[in-house]
Each structure stands twice: as C-alpha cells, then as structure tokens.
Simulated scan of single mutants.
Amino acid sequence: MAAMEAFCRDVLGADIIYADEDFAAIELLGSVFMLHADHSYLDNAMTGTIAGAETRGAGVELRLYGANPDAVEAAAREHGHIVLAGAIDKPHGLRESYVVGPDGYIFVPSAPLAG
C-alpha cells in the first residue's frame, strides 16, 4: 500500500486524505478514491478474483482526464516508474501519456489540446 500511496502522491499529484497499511483515501482531480490492500479482502467477495494473480492491475487502464500528461510523465521518470508511452498529441484531441503504477495498473493522464 505504501508504494501505491507514494505513486499517487508523488507522480499523480493526489492529496492523501488518510493512509495506513490496509487502506488509503486519496483526492485526485476532484474525485475521492479509496484503495484497499489485497490482504484486506480476506473475507470479501473479491477474494476469488484476485487469488493467484501475479500482477494485480494487469490489463486495467485508469484514464485521468484533466491531469497534465507531461508533468505525470516527468514525475514517473523521476521516481523510477515505467513510462509505456511519453506524452503525445492524439488525433482525438487529447494529449496523453501512459505510466505503469506499482501494482501494474496503467494510468493515462490526459488533457485537451489547445484550440
């Protein structure tokens, strides 16, 4: 949980509302997210879906509309995270980058192109 908390704070620029080894509440881009450690799911319906998973977030893409893709990319590189794709202008009118978080989730910060 500490690695994800640090990633959210240092790379995504989230405000940490509360965090311990089991749970964190963060505020990012006007929304509050609640993150739970795997071991907090021992008696939860999700237990069967995460059992034996090597990479928790494999295949999950979290799009962060309104996050600065250049700043997130720079922070990710500074903190040693994998940048799958650097910030680039896309034909659909957004500037995006792709960054891998500590649990394998892909974060895609994006912002509208000027004009």
Rank of each mutant, 00 (worst) to 15 (best):
110 S>G: 15
113 L>K: 12
71 A>I: 14
3 A>R: 10
36 H>K: 08
99 V>Y: 13
30 G>H: 07
92 H>Y: 15
20 D>M: 08
97 S>C: 15
40 S>E: 06
47 T>E: 10
58 A>C: 02
95 R>S: 06
97 S>I: 15
21 E>F: 09
69 P>K: 11
11 V>H: 03
77 R>P: 01
106 I>G: 01
115 G>N: 08
11 V>L: 02
18 Y>L: 03
35 L>K: 07
9 R>F: 07
64 L>E: 04
94 L>C: 13
100 V>K: 05
52 G>L: 04
47 T>G: 10
101 G>Q: 02
86 G>T: 13
25 A>F: 11
114 A>W: 05
12 L>F: 09
49 T>E: 11
33 F>W: 13
2 A>L: 08
49 T>H: 11
58 A>H: 07
105 Y>T: 02
21 E>I: 09
2 A>G: 05
45 A>S: 14
49 T>N: 08
81 H>K: 12
51 A>Q: 06
1 M>L: 10
19 A>F: 02
27 E>T: 09
91 P>W: 15
18 Y>S: 00
78 E>D: 09
2 A>Q: 10
7 F>I: 05
3 A>Q: 07
90 K>C: 14
60 V>D: 02
77 R>S: 06
16 I>S: 00
23 F>N: 03
92 H>R: 14
6 A>P: 00
106 I>F: 07
114 A>S: 04
76 A>L: 04
101 G>C: 00
17 I>W: 04
100 V>A: 06
21 E>G: 04
16 I>F: 03
36 H>C: 07
66 G>P: 00
44 N>K: 13
77 R>H: 12
71 A>C: 09
72 V>R: 00
12 L>E: 01
16 I>R: 02
1 M>T: 09
57 G>N: 05
31 S>D: 08
106 I>K: 03
68 N>C: 10
54 E>H: 10
109 P>A: 13
46 M>E: 09
57 G>P: 01
67 A>E: 02
82 I>A: 13
72 V>A: 07
37 A>F: 04
48 G>Q: 14
40 S>N: 05
78 E>H: 14
42 L>Y: 08
90 K>E: 15
70 D>I: 15
91 P>G: 14
10 D>V: 01
86 G>N: 10
104 G>S: 03
98 Y>K: 08
26 I>R: 00
19 A>N: 01
14 A>L: 03
104 G>K: 01
77 R>L: 12
99 V>L: 07
60 V>C: 12
15 D>N: 11
72 V>G: 00
54 E>S: 11
6 A>E: 04
105 Y>R: 03
34 M>C: 09
38 D>A: 13
14 A>T: 00
32 V>H: 09
87 A>Y: 15
98 Y>M: 08
70 D>F: 11
15 D>I: 13
103 D>M: 12
3 A>F: 11
12 L>C: 07
45 A>G: 14
110 S>I: 12
72 V>D: 03
95 R>V: 10
75 A>T: 03
101 G>S: 02
34 M>H: 14
1 M>R: 01
101 G>F: 07
73 E>I: 07
79 H>M: 08
3 A>G: 00
40 S>K: 08
37 A>Q: 04
52 G>S: 02
17 I>R: 06
59 G>Q: 01
38 D>H: 14
94 L>W: 15
10 D>K: 06
107 F>H: 04
47 T>S: 14
1 M>F: 12
27 E>Q: 05
